[in-house]
Amino acid sequence: MSSREREIRKQARAAKIQMWMAGRSSRNKSPLDKICRFIISRASTPKPEDDFLRDPLIDNDEGFDPDELDRFQRGELG
């Protein structure tokens, strides 16, 4: 078996494990699911100073007041 073949097989096994863990993590029911979720969460959380997704517009969003949305929909707000 060539070194390239070995490398592809190794990468394929790793990718399968990634997907299996992502599936369990997404289910998040059994203790094993939750361990997978914990590992994925840890592995995918960047350091705050490296977190390119932080954005005040998103992070500070508090949503809307339901009564205000009702009034808006009825055209009662400007």
């Binding site: 993590s25 979720r37 969460s41 517009l57 998103i58 949503g63 809307f64 007041d65 949305l69 808006f72």
Partner: peptide
């Protein structure tokens, strides 16, 4: 009343300004 990022770590922070404004955008008179 609010649209926010998923709790699932594989989808974390997959959200943009168009998503968070949706409750109001779709309540447009």
């Amino acid at each position: 009343v609010r649209v926010r990022s998923s709790d699932n770590p594989i989808f974390r922070d997959n959200i943009c300004m168009k998503g968070i404004i949706s409750p109001k955008g779709l309540a447009n008179p």
